[in-house]
């Protein structure tokens, strides 16, 4: 089980950074540039790990990125990778969808604690924006999750995944999928829901004081965490995957859509994004929920 979990984390780390590299590349192509190499994000994180020193604001600041990393890793370990496989399941038999939804909030919490303790007002501004956005962001996703849990009469991710052999939830519950997908775009932190770290407005937002190894851990956890989110979407709506190749294909498609949407849209303000999320995707998902 330990090796299994380690393999999950390592795969998520590699794919997360690879996808982030792809994101930079695709954005570059959209802008008409060549873009950096695929491994550039990986190089960045290694370089940050190798900085001679990192600014520390005290023990809570030190613990903040660690809590973020715990949030990312625990979320990942409670989501099975493959459909019907004995490998790469992590601890998923000990958890369920509700637990995963709550573990997903641990990462913002660690972020908030670490950043709050450094006393930089820009960081806290970013955090408040993030938590305010979370009000709107979680609503459609929760509705979709509730719909799926009621439809399958189980909160077990494995059960929801295997019950899709006749048709993906994305097609049997299309409205739930649309609602959850818009909210997923926000969870990925791309435009138009990227108010949290908007560099033109709040410096670097939450990351303002993170440097060296702390920033490296924050980057690594965000790579792992975004892969976990992709995985969750694939498991809930696209029927999971039988093999790693299928998994990569499905997650990549989701990721590509998120990146392309992010490149096209301008940024919402905090209030706009909450209002949009509470009206449009929530409305769509609620209609979907009534069908369930």
């Amino acid at each position: 089980m330990f090796l299994d979990s380690l393999a999950m984390i390592a795969l998520a780390y590699i794919f997360g950074f690879l996808y982030y590299g792809l994101y930079r590349n695709i954005s570059a192509r959209v802008h008409g540039r060549f873009g950096p190499s695929l491994a550039q994000s990986f190089f960045d994180s290694i370089k940050l790990f190798l900085k001679e020193n990192s600014t520390n604001f005290g023990w809570m600041f030190y613990a903040g990125p660690i809590i973020m990393m715990i949030g990312a890793i625990t979320t990942l370990l409670f989501i099975p990778y493959l459909n019907g496989s004995e490998h790469l399941v992590g601890l998923s038999q000990y958890g369920n969808l509700i637990l995963v939804l709550y573990l997903m909030v641990l990462e913002p919490l660690g972020n908030a604690m670490g950043i709050g303790s450094n006393g930089n007002p820009f960081g806290v501004m970013g955090i408040t924006r993030g938590l305010t956005r979370l009000i709107g962001l979680e609503l459609p996703f929760y509705i979709a999750a509730i719909g799926l849990m009621i439809a399958n009469h189980s909160a077990d991710i494995g059960v929801i995944m295997t019950n899709q052999s006749e048709g993906y939830n994305a097609f049997t519950h299309p409205l739930l999928f649309i609602g959850a997908f818009i909210s997923f775009l926000g969870f990925m932190g791309k435009s138009p829901f990227d108010v949290v770290g908007a560099p033109q407005e709040v410096y670097s937002g939450p990351a303002t004081e993170f440097s060296g190894k702390f920033f490296a851990i924050a980057l690594s956890q965000s790579a792992i965490f975004s892969f976990a989110k992709l995985l969750l979407m694939v498991n809930l709506f696209l029927g999971g995957a039988q093999s790693l190749v299928e998994l990569v294909a499905k997650t990549f498609v989701l990721f590509l859509v998120a990146v392309l949407v992010g490149n096209v849209y301008a940024r919402f303000t905090t209030a706009q994004s909450v209002e949009f999320l509470v009206r449009v995707p929530t409305g769509i998902a609620l209609v979907g929920l009534l069908f369930v």
């Binding site: 940050l48 001679e52 020193n53 520390n56 604001f57 990125p65 190894k213």
Partner: peptide, 11 residues
């Protein structure tokens, strides 16, 4: 984190 090369410098 603690065993990393990068030293945590207190502000």
């Amino acid at each position: 984190v603690t065993s990393m090369r990068s030293k945590a410098v207190k502000v």
